[in-house]
Design a protein around this nucleic acid. Structure first.
Length: 302
DNA sequence: AATGCGGGGGA
DNA sequence: TCCCCAGCATT
């Protein structure tokens, strides 16, 4: 059990730090659930410098949920561009259509209804509730896991060492009632700027209350949570190449696609990846032709 | 619990 | 080079 005085000390120190280091991202003050969802989905496994660009481009093209719902999948994927994990764009598109059909064209405030949306998990739902609806919800991302795991449990690499359930329970306990819209970004920014994988304990405003006393050794760093496969020659690289070409080029033929990609001996493999993209709702294949997003409507009977 | 899923920037 | 990134869905 964490003593209430310690909870208060952590809250006070972190919020004071946040007052001086807040990053004024537009979706934090917009009070727009849709804007919060776009930002949260764009932020999945993506650094904030890139999220800002994606967000501006996306909101300019699809300023509201109904506008997004009406757009074509190909346009959605082109606006997403090279932001990575294009399935996220398809999820946003599907979520918008779901909200139009089931929730009157707006995002629902209930956690259960939010979690039912494609691409919306615990973190994104908490961001939507916090920034979009002004409700209290603990947003636990990779940064928050690190800060809580270190400050409350004294673990250098909490993603590996601290049980997720323990981190989650502590995140709920720490959340200052009525202040999630400040508290969540404070925790996340602190993990991104101070309590990094290689911690900067010298600059830490929580050192006096941190469970890692007096501090981690200089140069200590968390080990990777998951091993990283090679990028060169990977399925992901090929999928990215296919998508890049389909975005740039209009509807085309599979032969022309292959001619451009030059898969060599890997032609069958790349052809299989194109089918995978179709299953993911990112590309279509009809006979010899293919393209971005959904297939063009059939104009004959049948 | 483990894996698939982009792309870019930084050490 | 390798690691990191405001995760989620699927198996």
């Amino acid at each position: 059990m964490v003593p209430p005085a310690r909870v208060r000390a952590i809250r006070t120190s972190l919020l004071r730090w946040y007052d001086a280091h807040e990053q004024p991202f537009p979706w934090r003050s917009a009070r727009d659930p849709y804007a919060a969802m776009v930002a949260a989905v764009a932020a999945q496994q993506t650094q904030m410098a890139r999220v800002l660009e994606i967000y501006d481009r996306w909101m300019a093209a699809f300023p509201t949920l109904p506008v997004l719902a009406q757009a074509g999948r190909d346009e959605v994927l082109r606006v997403w561009g090279r932001a990575g994990y294009p399935q996220r764009a398809a999820y946003l598109h599907q979520a918008a259509q779901h909200c139009v059909e089931e929730h009157g064209g707006a995002l629902p405030p209930d956690p259960e209804a939010l979690l039912a949306l494609p691409g919306v998990g615990p973190f994104t739902a908490a961001i939507i509730r916090t920034f979009g609806f002004g409700e209290d919800a603990a947003a636990v991302d990779t940064n928050v896991v690190r800060v809580i795991g270190r400050v409350l449990f004294g673990d250098l690499q909490p993603a590996r060492e601290t049980p997720a359930a323990a981190v989650g329970a502590m995140a709920e306990r720490l959340l200052p009632p009525g202040e999630a819209a400040r508290w969540n970004p404070a925790l996340m920014d602190y993990g991104a700027l101070v309590c990094l994988p290689r911690p900067r304990c010298q600059a830490c405003v929580l050192a006096s209350v941190c469970a890692a006393r007096p501090r981690f050794q200089a140069g200590e760093t968390a080990e990777p949570v998951r091993a990283q496969g090679a990028w060169e020659g990977s399925d992901r690289q090929w999928r990215g190449r296919i998508m890049a070409h389909l975005r740039q080029r209009g509807p085309t033929t599979v032969s022309a696609l292959m001619r451009h990609l030059r898969p060599g001996q890997e032609r069958a493999r790349v052809r299989g990846l194109l089918d995978g993209l179709q299953r993911d709702g990112l590309a279509w294949v009809r006979g010899a032709r293919c393209g971005l997003g959904d297939p063009p409507a059939e104009d004959g009977p049948g």
